[in-house]
């Protein structure tokens, strides 16, 4: 038997990186493993066991994230996190989590294949997102590290602000919406449609 064939959610596109003709740069992040982790944030045992497996404290502040090395943990709810790691480590990490958590009431599931991630970079990213979402991405607290679940272009999505300068935001959507989301951004992020909200204009 031949090797198992693996395809990313946007692999059907000719290019999983924009052709430089948009007001943002856009690419698929296809090498990220994801784990859905649920547990009681109030339980010290749970937090310790999770930390022992992940090497990182779970972020407890709403809409925050924690980063260490190649691991990023995104806060999803008061009892839910999305653990992001290199894809080849996800399976092992789920096993370690389950082992460490043992009888502690929790759930750790590999959901690497459930979502597509589209990375947007550039000065115009916030504006493009606000064309599809009622969230105010210009608020002061919307800076690197912030995680926000939102309705984006009429679908459920998650935005993670990775860096501020340059502005890098990862958009997570369920895998089946990957193609739609990509095309929506392609259609919306046309340079001629740039508004330059509150931008200073010379004159």
């Amino acid at each position: 038997m031949s090797e198992a064939v693996y395809t990313s959610p946007l692999a059907h596109l000719e290019n999983t990186r924009d052709a430089g003709n948009l007001s943002v740069s856009m690419s698929e992040v296809s090498d990220r493993g994801m784990i859905d982790l649920r547990g009681e944030a109030g339980s010290v045992k749970f937090r310790q066991a999770a930390k022992a497996a992940l090497g990182i404290d779970l972020p407890l502040k709403p809409r925050s994230s924690a980063v260490k090395g190649d691991m990023t943990v995104l806060w999803l709810s008061i009892d839910q996190w999305l653990v992001c790691c290199p894809q080849n480590k996800a399976g092992g990490l789920v096993s370690t989590l389950r082992k460490n958590l043992g009888e502690i009431h929790s759930l750790a599931v590999d959901v690497t294949d459930a979502r597509a991630i589209i990375r947007l970079e550039g000065d115009n990213v916030r504006e493009v997102l606000m064309k599809g979402s009622s969230i105010d991405f210009t608020l002061p607290e919307y800076k690197a590290g912030l995680v926000r679940r939102l309705m984006f272009a009429e679908i459920a999505a998650l935005a993670h602000i990775v860096t501020d300068k340059p502005c890098t935001i990862d958009i997570y959507v369920f895998r089946s919406y990957a193609d739609y989301t990509w095309k929506w951004i392609e259609a919306t992020a046309k340079p001629a449609a740039t508004i330059g909200l509150f931008g200073k204009r010379s004159g």
């Binding site: 709403p62 009622s134 926000r148 939102l150």
Partner: peptide, 11 residues
């Protein structure tokens, strides 16, 4: 009141 998220009614 649980997570402090503020948003439109549609959220």
């Amino acid at each position: 009141p649980v997570c402090g998220a503020e948003g439109d009614e549609t959220d």
